[in-house]
Simulated scan of single mutants.
Amino acid sequence: MFFKLVSGIANQACGFIDKNSQCTLEDIACIFSESTNIDEVEFIGYNCNRSNPIWGSFRKYQKIVAYRGEIDTVEIRYANHLSSAWRRFVVTKELCHSLEADKGYFSVENQDVKRLITELSISSIPSNGKFSRPFSMERRAELAALEILLPFSKREQIIQQEGTLTESRIEELAEQFDAPVFYTAMAFSDSYISIARHLFSEDA
């Protein structure tokens, strides 16, 4: 259910990318409000030391609004020192995390592509495309954010047209999609593409 919902959000993000070359955080917030039980999204930047490993957090709560009644609100907080690419990833990841939890955070100390690939190992996916074992909500949210910022269909088109990508081309694509090079490289890796194909392709 989670991945199906994320796939729908990613498909809508593709529409914005096709039209405007990019899907902004405001666009993503609107998609979430229209496609999920989240009624309102608030972004709040905060100042902190760059050595602080906590780059973002979220909390979900209900509040009463005149003429609307009780609404579900997600407040996303992010460190002001983040680059545009990292801010987009952290905010989108926290939004995705809010689909399954009421609060959480993103820590730079959790960055580990090998750990994520291992946890999402293709060997754990049977022929029906479903995971045989659960993995953490943190990893699910990371995966979901990656798919919204760099939709599988867009990546597949690029791979079909260009084949194996060089490091410099990965950096160009990271700039084009305004996503961290760290995650862009992962998104185009063979091991990750195999996983994403089971979860986000049209035939999944």
Rank of each mutant, 00 (worst) to 15 (best):
M1V: 13
M1G: 15
V6P: 05
A10K: 00
N11Y: 08
G15L: 13
F16W: 12
I17S: 01
K19C: 03
N20A: 11
N20D: 15
C23K: 11
C23T: 10
T24I: 10
I31F: 03
I31L: 11
F32S: 10
S33T: 12
E34S: 14
N37A: 06
I38T: 04
V41L: 08
E42Y: 09
F43V: 09
G45K: 09
C48R: 11
S51I: 14
N52H: 14
N52M: 14
P53N: 14
S57L: 07
Y61P: 03
Y61T: 06
Q62L: 12
I64P: 08
V65S: 04
A66N: 06
A66E: 08
A66M: 09
Y67G: 02
I71P: 04
D72G: 04
R77L: 03
Y78E: 03
A79Q: 08
N80W: 04
H81N: 04
S83A: 00
S83C: 00
S84G: 01
W86D: 04
R87W: 05
T92I: 00
T92N: 03
K93D: 06
E94M: 09
C96I: 03
C96L: 01
H97M: 03
S98P: 05
S98E: 06
S98Y: 10
E100Y: 10
A101D: 12
D102A: 13
D102M: 13
K103L: 14
G104C: 05
G104V: 06
S107E: 10
E109H: 13
D112Q: 11
D112S: 15
E119M: 06
L120R: 12
L120C: 11
L120A: 11
S121K: 11
S123G: 08
S123H: 13
S124V: 13
S124N: 13
I125A: 06
P126I: 13
N128D: 10
N128I: 08
G129Q: 06
G129S: 02
F131Q: 02
R133Q: 14
F135S: 03
F135D: 08
S136R: 01
S136I: 07
S136K: 07
M137A: 14
R139S: 15
L143Y: 07
L143M: 05
A145I: 03
E147Y: 00
L150H: 05
P151M: 03
P151T: 02
S153A: 15
E156Y: 15
E156L: 12
Q157E: 14
Q157R: 12
I159E: 07
Q161H: 13
G163R: 07
L165G: 04
T166I: 07
T166K: 05
R169D: 07
E171S: 12
E172Q: 09
A174K: 01
E175I: 00
F177I: 04
D178G: 06
V181N: 04
Y183F: 13
T184W: 06
T184F: 04
A185D: 15
M186R: 11
A187E: 12
F188N: 01
D190M: 01
S191G: 01
S191W: 07
Y192Q: 04
I193F: 09
S194K: 13
I195K: 03
I195L: 05
A196T: 02
R197E: 13
H198E: 14
L199E: 09
E202H: 03
D203A: 12
